[in-house]
Design a protein around this nucleic acid. Structure first.
Lengths: 251, 251
DNA sequence: CTGACTATGGTCAGTACGACTATAAAGGGG
DNA sequence: CCCCTTTATAGTCGTACTGACCATAGTCAG
């Protein structure tokens, strides 16, 4: 549009658009909310109570309201779904838009998908007018409703790729974290094991990725030598990137 | 939506949606069509004939029809705009969706933006019911209509980044090309000069990036030693990536 | 005290990359 | 026809990065 108003389907609208000269679309957002918990990649899902796909798991989401952008709708839905009032430290990123005409059997729905990363996963709040949201392990998910399998796969791929060349991994971590926790984020998302000394060397050699918390604070959680605490630096990109092993060697 | 039908704005629609229980959105596509021509990055633009932004350049695009996906709409609009019947060798990639409520002063328009790369730029066809599309140099563009400056900047950034770790550059080249042409794609999009022997070594060392045309075909265009011809290989990703110089050294 | 466990520090060789020099093959101008 | 410009291609060399290791330090469970 905009280059050629006359192309509006259903009629010509030379000056202002005729609001109903074209088929209206419902615009929604779908959220792939990821976290690393208990050493596994987990996703926030809701159980559908109605047809179609009753009983199946689906990504949380909802309609975009007339006065808000898709980003605002995503933040609002996420707050409602998780009950998380403070969305600081949240990474929310637009994935892509899914617009196949038959993706919702009831009507034409165009959905803008987002990937969101949470550091410390709060239990989804119970109070709500709809099905309860729950964290489920990314592996061993049955088929989801609609095209949500594809959305989730795209989100996983995107996050995995961005770990390589951005500092995104810190978005999975609490404000203070150890390098072991950071490494576990990489290993969990990528599904591979990394060499610990090499990972450490690489992260510390990247200026602005992490910075050590000055007051020699140390986390004593379980056994083993206590680890130094770090917080996220101000860098956004990783140069050179931290490539995942699976994508490098090709014997 | 889909997790909680009751959240449809404007009313509850327990089973099927009430088609007009929510504010309808117009859904459009906007195309950032890029090519490398005459040693410069060029963009396909149309001149607006009507308010708002009359006389300004805008990205080509149009409404998504009720029965087609955004991708299909993008292909259709591109064919109409360029008159290019064969869209083989075309790279079309969804960029992101722009949904700010006030991005079009007339009404609520949600636009799915695409980046398209053309190898050999055909002159845009004259026949059409709207303003003529033209190739303009990416530099020295005045402000575009709507938020199209931002869309174009995002497209440029995305393409520049994907040159680093994918084989996308071949999408800017004709079916047979020399390594010099391929290098010029990188230099034009990135706006930097590259060392020729090093570029050559890197490209040839990446398996599946390009493969030499067997029948010692050589292009004799201008002066200098004739160059060997190559075609795109079957690889999609570059490992390790070909990083642009600007993003590496940071003195 | 001992052993398991984790964090941290270091070595070493293979590889990739930037900067650079050299050679080959064409056309143009005298 | 010779020389010079132009472009393609080949190779060299030192530095930086990386993967695969080995070694040490600090804490907890028994």
């Amino acid at each position: 549009m905009r280059g050629k108003e006359s192309r509006a389907p259903g009629g010509t609208a030379p000056e202002g658009y005729d609001k109903y000269a074209f088929e209206p679309f419902a615009v929604t957002v779908d959220l792939a909310v990821l976290t690393v918990r208990a050493g596994a990649l987990q996703v926030l899902l809701v159980e559908r109570g109605q047809e179609p796909y009753a009983g199946r798991w689906a990504l949380p989401g909802g309609f975009v309201l007339p006065h808000e952008s898709a980003e605002a709708a995503a933040r609002r839905e996420l707050a409602e779904e998780t009950g998380l009032s403070d969305l600081s430290g949240l990474h929310l990123e637009q994935l892509r838009t899914y617009s196949e005409p038959d993706r919702d059997p009831r009507m034409r729905v165009v959905s803008v998908a987002f990937a969101a990363l949470l550091p410390d996963p709060p239990e989804p709040r119970g109070g709500g007018d709809a099905a309860q949201a729950q964290w489920l392990r990314f592996n061993a998910l049955g088929p989801l409703a609609f095209d949500h399998d594809r959305i989730l796969a795209d989100a996983h791929e995107r996050v995995g790729a961005k770990l390589e060349y951005t500092c995104l991994a810190t978005s999975f971590c609490p404000p203070r974290f150890t390098l072991g926790e950071l490494q576990q984020v990489y290993e969990t998302v990528w599904g591979t094991a990394l060499d610990r000394p090499n990972f450490r060397r690489k992260v510390l050699a990247t200026p602005g990725f992490v910075e050590q918390v000055p007051g020699a604070a140390r986390l004593t959680g379980g056994r083993g030598k206590p680890a130094a605490l770090y917080r996220a630096g101000d860098a956004k990109a990783l140069h050179p990137p931290l490539l995942r092993p699976s994508s490098e060697g090709r014997p």
